[in-house]
Write a protein that binds this DNA or RNA. Sequence first.
DNA 1: TTGACGCGTAGGCAAACCCCTACCTATTGT
DNA 2: ACAATAGGTAGGGGTTTGCCTACGCGTCAA
Lengths: 124, 124
Amino acid sequence: MTGTGTGGTAADIRAADEDRVFAALANATRREVLRLLRNEGPQPVQALADHFAMRRPSLSEHLKVLREAGLVSEQRSGRRRIYRLEAAPLAEVQDWLHPYERFWRERLKGLGELLDRMPDDDRP
Amino acid sequence: MTGTGTGGTAADIRAADEDRVFAALANATRREVLRLLRNEGPQPVQALADHFAMRRPSLSEHLKVLREAGLVSEQRSGRRRIYRLEAAPLAEVQDWLHPYERFWRERLKGLGELLDRMPDDDRP
DNA sequence: TTGACGCGTAGGCAAACCCCTACCTATTGT
DNA sequence: ACAATAGGTAGGGGTTTGCCTACGCGTCAA
């Protein structure tokens, strides 16, 4: 749609990456997997699965989503696969967030100024 | 659901809020709506809808999702409803992101140290 | 007052999501 | 070689998402 011919511009690819990352983060189980990898370090699948009520194959699919978003990597060690947090895509989320930052800061700043202009008696 | 008897702790409520925000951000149309409100200021629905290929009622549903996530607010002005960006929930996303920050910074830092230890001749 | 405008909601439908139970391959220990 | 272990994949089913058209309600202009 946005490309020439059959498409695939650099911007399209970046947008698709962004979409995969946000979509991956939309699920609470996947966010919890990221938290576990962050707090407890790299782990095989079963160790991760022990933290959840769901069956292992379901977790495997979540790991696939995280892998395709670049948020985890796997390293084979014998018959186990050690999953590791890859935080780089989260930096892109932070970049996405950045232009909004002044909006919530303005709100806080505005509140501060409101309090500054308010007579002490009227303050909450 | 969130009553006193059947559960619904403060942590549950925060978790549900977090889930709504991440879910709202999982859609490219909704992220684009936020960007438009940020760049062009508060607008009625039709002005927003003009930027998309979809029909207005579909956009209305996206706005509902954003409203329930607290990411936009509406102000009635005659028969129009002016939507405004509410960035506060994005601060929670930033808070969520924060403990991961050192992971991608470590990666960059590690790269920097590698370059530091590398003889100048070997640098890329 | 009556018609046009702005917008939300209802209902339908296809696709995607998320869980499950088999099942398959690869590796390891006996 | 064989059984057990680790984990991915296939296929099925219920629920959710995201789009549509049709419609209802409130507001403004003629």
